[in-house]
Amino acid sequence: MSWIVYVMGAAGFDSVRDFPEGWSPPPLGPRESVIRRLHAVLPTLFFATSTEGSYHGDGFSITFDLGPWEVVPRVRLLVHGPSHEALDVLGRVAEALDGRALDTGLGDFMRFAKDPDSGRHVWRDAPPAESGWLPA
């Protein structure tokens, strides 16, 4: 079972439906800064390349895709495995990057403080990720 989450800068918006037409999120920062902030909250996070990292937890793993940009606009997280611990990791990652976690299963932001259970249904209901969604 896989689940895709994007972490992006979206301060001031309660929902993706609030985005004005043509709006683009601000960048999360330079690649090295993003990697450094991720390592601060996940010391065992391993980046095999400057664009892709992996983290392994108890019963789950997360692939971090920073994309080809030197200034990172968003981080794509591909979560593998049904683990509630992964939700905690997602929250810590979003906080470390001063970003919001967009749950592709819900189609909106995860609300870790307001609704800690947001996203938990995805573990039960999500179909496996298509192989075309995986980074090259």
Score class of each variant (00 low, 15 high):
Val34Gly: 00
Gly105Ala: 10
His121Arg: 12
Asp115Arg: 07
Ala94Gly: 05
Asp115Glu: 12
Ser24Phe: 14
Ala96Glu: 05
Arg76Tyr: 03
Phe64Val: 09
Arg100Gly: 01
Ile4Phe: 00
Ser83Met: 09
Thr49His: 10
Gly91Ala: 07
Leu28His: 01
Pro30Gln: 15
Gly53Arg: 13
Trp23Val: 05
Gly59Met: 04
Pro116Asn: 07
Ala86Val: 15
Ala11Gly: 08
Asp88Tyr: 12
Arg100Met: 06
Ser2Val: 14
Thr49Gly: 14
Gly107Pro: 02
Leu45Gly: 02
Arg37Glu: 03
Phe112Thr: 04
Leu102Tyr: 11
Gly99Pro: 02
Ser118Gln: 09
Ala40His: 01
Val93Ser: 00
Pro25Ile: 03
Thr49Ile: 13
Ser118Ala: 09
Asp98Asn: 15
Gly81Ala: 10
Pro25Leu: 05
Ala86Asp: 12
His84Thr: 12
Ala113Val: 13
Leu87Thr: 07
Val89Phe: 06
Thr104Ser: 08
Gly12Cys: 07
Trp3Ala: 01
Val75Tyr: 02
Phe46Gly: 13
Ser118Asp: 13
Phe64Cys: 10
Met8Pro: 02
Val93Cys: 00
Phe46Lys: 15
Ser61Ile: 08
Ser15Thr: 07
Glu21Ala: 06
Leu45Met: 10
His39Ala: 12
Phe109Tyr: 04
Ile62Val: 10
Arg92Ile: 11
Val7Gln: 02
Thr51Pro: 06
Asp14Glu: 03
Pro25Met: 02
Glu95Lys: 06
Phe109Leu: 08
Gly12Glu: 05
Val122Gln: 00
Glu32Met: 13
Gly91Trp: 03
Thr49Met: 12
Ala129Ile: 08
Tyr55Gln: 07
Leu42Glu: 08
Val122Leu: 11
Leu45Tyr: 02
Ser131Arg: 06
Arg124Met: 11
Val89Tyr: 04
Ser15Phe: 07
Asp117Ser: 12
Gly107Gln: 09
Glu70Ser: 15
Gly12Ala: 08
Ile62Gln: 00
Val89Cys: 12
Arg36Cys: 15
Ala96Trp: 03
Asp14Cys: 02
Val93Pro: 00
Val89Pro: 03
Phe60Cys: 04
Tyr6Trp: 12
